[in-house]
Simulated assay, not measured.
Amino acid sequence: MADMTDVKIRLNFWRSAYEKLTAAYTALVDGRVKSYTIDDRQLTRFDLGTLKDEIEEAEQKIDELTALLNGRRPRKAFGVIPRDW
């Protein structure tokens, strides 16, 4: 498990990535621009689906890292097996 300084660094990275992704998404959806550039990546309206997926991934990472900073453990996956008695 990473120490708190590493968690804070990762959290800052994902927050800045989230801000860039949401800015690109809103600019493309509003129709203000035909293409948007993030660092060396060129995005168009055709990339909205993948951009939305990346935003959801960033939100999930931010939630996990803030939970780690608050002292909570990451969520564990579990399965439910329905039974017919």
Rank of each mutant, 00 (worst) to 15 (best):
Y18D: 11
A77C: 01
T22S: 10
K8D: 03
E56D: 14
F78G: 01
T44M: 08
E56V: 02
I81G: 00
N70C: 04
L68G: 02
D84V: 15
G49C: 08
R32W: 10
V29I: 12
A23D: 14
L65Q: 04
I55S: 12
A2C: 03
N12D: 11
A2G: 02
D47N: 13
K61S: 07
N70R: 05
D6H: 08
G71V: 10
L28C: 13
A17P: 02
D47H: 13
T66H: 00
L21P: 07
L11W: 06
R83V: 13
E54R: 10
L43F: 13
I38A: 09
M4C: 02
F46N: 14
S16F: 09
N70K: 07
T5L: 07
A58I: 08
Y36G: 09
K20P: 08
I81M: 03
L48I: 11
T66K: 01
I38N: 12
R72T: 01
R41Q: 15
I62F: 04
K8S: 07
A24C: 11
A23V: 09
F78P: 02
L69N: 03
D63Q: 07
L21V: 09
T22Y: 10
R45F: 07
R83W: 00
S35N: 14
I38E: 12
V80T: 04
L28N: 12
D3N: 14
K52R: 14
A58C: 12
L68N: 00
G79V: 02
T66Y: 00
A67N: 01
F46D: 15
T44G: 14
W14M: 13
G71F: 08
R72V: 00
G31E: 12
Y36W: 08
S16I: 08
V7A: 01
K8C: 06
M4N: 07
T26C: 10
E56Y: 08
A24D: 10
A23R: 12
L48Y: 05
D30P: 07
T44I: 04
L48D: 07
D30K: 13
R72A: 01
N70D: 09
D39L: 08
S35P: 07
K61I: 03
E56S: 11
K20S: 15
D47Q: 08
V7F: 03
M4T: 02
P82R: 08
E57Y: 03
Y25C: 12
R75P: 02
A24Y: 10
K8L: 13
P82E: 08
R32P: 09
T5R: 01
D3T: 05
E59R: 00
P82H: 05
L11R: 06
N70P: 02
Y25N: 13
D30Y: 06
R32T: 15
K76Q: 00
K76M: 02
A27W: 03
